[in-house]
């Protein structure tokens, strides 16, 4: 039984421009001990997907199962048990910590809410976790603004680990950090994964980070998954034109410059194009793409693509 299993999940919002299809029919599985990378550009719905999995946003349709239990319909009270097992790490280390609480208070609250330990035990748990994420013990009496971005992200990680979760949704955990700090945080996440046997749903727009960090990668465009494969396969044999364009667009010092691989902008999720959502920007688009929605199909074991022409791409 997979740790997390999401079936045909849809999250739609009503907005001024009409119905916004942030997440529009996604299947997703995270196995125990696995890191699933979710890549896409801003506005593709990846953050909404992360929040829906945590039930911070209510899904419109579909099913979310955690360890076989359907959590799609649980009310907030019944969700409390699940909350301990699924945690989240946020992108902005400046916004995700309450500026008016000390680190000690921030870290103690989850323990109090879930009635773990007495005062002394809680203090010990906090001291342990603070040491584990590489912060000095006196941090607990300090306020968030006294820390640098990297240190705050460590605090965010400590908070996520406190309740011994099994799955952590990481929403762009390093993209707000300076390059020299990113590696520190990525290494810490790997260490914690090994130590606590964690599974990650790792959401990022940065392909090179996902390249390093994920076991399996899903590429998202306009609320849908367009390609899914294990890490090695995806980078060596990408079959969706969007995946390729993304990879080509990342400037790499080891590669000569080439023309921008994609023209145009991401269409609005409230006005999704007909047929294949990518046809407005796709260099290979044909009339078929404009009319017919491609099926998300397996082209090899563990490698699925939603493109009519995936066989012709190599």
């Amino acid at each position: 039984m997979p740790l997390l299993s999401v079936t045909d999940l849809k999250t739609h919002y009503k907005s001024r421009d009409g119905l916004l299809r942030a997440v529009d029919g996604i299947d997703l599985v995270v196995e125990r001990g696995e890191t699933v990378g979710l890549v896409g550009e801003s506005g593709c719905g990846k953050s909404t997907l992360g929040k829906t999995v945590l039930r911070l946003v209510d899904p419109t349709a579909g099913r979310i199962e955690f360890k076989g239990e359907d959590i799609t319909v649980l009310d907030q009270r019944s969700l409390r048990g699940v909350r301990k097992s699924i945690q989240m790490i946020f992108q902005d280390p400046f916004a995700s910590l309450n500026p008016r609480q000390t680190i000690g208070e921030i870290l103690e609250a989850p323990l109090v809410v879930h009635k773990l330990g007495d005062r002394a035990e809680r203090r010990q748990i906090i001291a342990d976790i603070v040491a584990k994420v590489g912060l000095p013990p006196e941090s607990v009496s300090r306020y968030p603004h006294e820390f640098s971005g990297g240190q705050r992200q460590r605090i965010g990680i400590a908070r996520a680990l406190l309740l011994n979760p099994e799955l952590i949704v990481c929403d762009e955990p390093v993209s707000a950090l300076d390059l020299s700090i990113q590696a520190q945080i990525l290494n810490l996440l790997v260490e914690m994964k090994k130590e606590f046997g964690l599974s990650y749903l790792f959401i990022s727009h940065d392909l090179s980070v996902v390249r390093y960090f994920a076991d399996r990668v899903m590429v998202m465009y306009l609320g849908r998954i367009v390609e899914s494969a294990d890490n090695a396969t995806l980078w060596s044999d990408p079959r969706h034109p969007y995946t390729r364009a993304l990879m080509e667009a990342v400037p790499d010092p080891a590669r000569p410059r080439q023309a921008a691989p994609l023209g145009g902008d991401l269409p609005s999720p409230s006005d999704v194009p007909s047929g294949c959502g990518f046809h407005t920007r796709c260099p290979l688009a044909t009339d078929q793409c404009r009319a017919e929605e491609p099926e998300f199909r397996a082209i090899a074991p563990g490698h699925q693509v939603a493109c009519h022409f995936s066989d012709h791409i190599n």
């Binding site: 390059l179 090179s208 390249r211 980078w235």
Partner: peptide
């Protein structure tokens, strides 16, 4: 340090 610390797309290195 910066160059070494940044994960690179074409650089085959995994956690």
């Amino acid at each position: 340090g910066l160059l070494a610390a940044s994960p690179r797309l074409k650089h085959d290195f995994h956690y």
